[in-house]
């Protein structure tokens, strides 16, 4: 009697553990961003995440040189501070843009996209890791530049410039990551970014005083709110990029581009 019962109804605990393993196996793991970044760093290693470290160093050097020259020559060419805020808005995200988009250009030129996209860690995950680190790096670099400017020019408002620079970098980062996740062709990716620079450049060239007034008239708490919101969305989007589950197929083409 007992024996029969046992074979008909398996042990409840066994059933439960079976169910648990099935559930665990079927779940796509969702770790925190920090955990994902660390595990990527450990598994891939900085050598291959920053595969193009020579180009990265060169780009950073060029940007640092540019910032240095801008600061040094500020006095002699009698730049007004009106130029500077617009310039900061314009310059802040450029290095970030270049560093972020560079792997996409490289693998397009070398046609390594498809292999890299079908690996466990695909290009988008690497790009997300890089973007996250570069955004912090560029933030620091920009801040140092602004400190130097503030030390040099008495009329220069550090807080104002800091808010402008950080907002610019963050907004741009956010736009870029949305572009990368929506737009699939490289030309469109680069095009949209260049137009960001173009618009800013135009604003600086056409009427830097009006642009200056606009940038200055935005109250600090609005900048603060934009920064908070943008950071939140940015981190959220980076994480999404890492998980890569929402992207419905990564290219829109079969042959050619």
């Amino acid at each position: 009697m007992d024996k029969n019962n046992q074979s008909l109804f398996p042990d409840e605990r066994l059933v439960e553990s079976e169910i648990n393993t099935i559930v665990v196996k079927g779940m796509v793991k969702r770790d925190s961003l920090a955990k994902m970044l660390i595990s990527m760093y450990k598994q891939i290693g900085i050598r291959f995440i920053m595969r193009d470290y020579k180009e990265i160093i060169a780009a950073v050097a060029v940007m640092a040189l540019f910032m240095y020259v801008m600061t040094k020559n500020g006095q002699t060419t009698q730049y007004k501070q009106t130029h500077y805020y617009g310039m900061i808005m314009l310059v802040s995200p450029i290095l970030y843009m270049f560093l972020s988009i560079f792997p996409f250009i490289q693998n397009k030129l070398n046609e390594t996209y498809e292999v890299e996209m079908t690996c466990k860690y695909n290009l988008y995950q690497i790009a997300a890791f890089r973007m996250f680190s570069f955004s912090i790096f560029c933030f620091l670099l920009n801040t140092i530049w602004i400190i130097l400017l503030a030390m040099k020019f008495s009329s220069f408002q550090f807080v104002q410039a800091f808010l402008i620079s950080t907002t610019s970098l963050l907004l741009f980062s956010l736009v870029l990551i949305y572009i990368l996740s929506i737009v699939k062709t490289l030309i469109a990716k680069v095009g949209i970014q260049l137009s960001w620079i173009g618009i800013n450049l135009m604003l600086v060239i056409i009427d830097s005083t009006v642009y200056y007034k606009l940038l200055v008239s935005v109250p600090w708490y609005l900048y603060g709110m934009i920064i908070c919101l943008a950071s939140y969305l940015y981190v959220k989007k980076i994480k999404e990029f890492m998980l890569q589950n929402k992207l419905r197929g990564v290219n829109g083409y079969v042959n050619g581009y």
């Binding site: 046609e111 996209y113 498809e114 292999v115 197929g249």
Partner: peptide, 22 residues
């Protein structure tokens, strides 16, 4: 597609156009 990296971990792929870093 929803398996994401768990699926990519299982596959090996040679594309028709196999690119490389020179």
């Amino acid at each position: 597609f929803s398996m994401g990296e768990n699926y990519r971990d299982l596959i090996g792929y040679l594309p028709q156009q196999f690119g490389y870093y020179k």
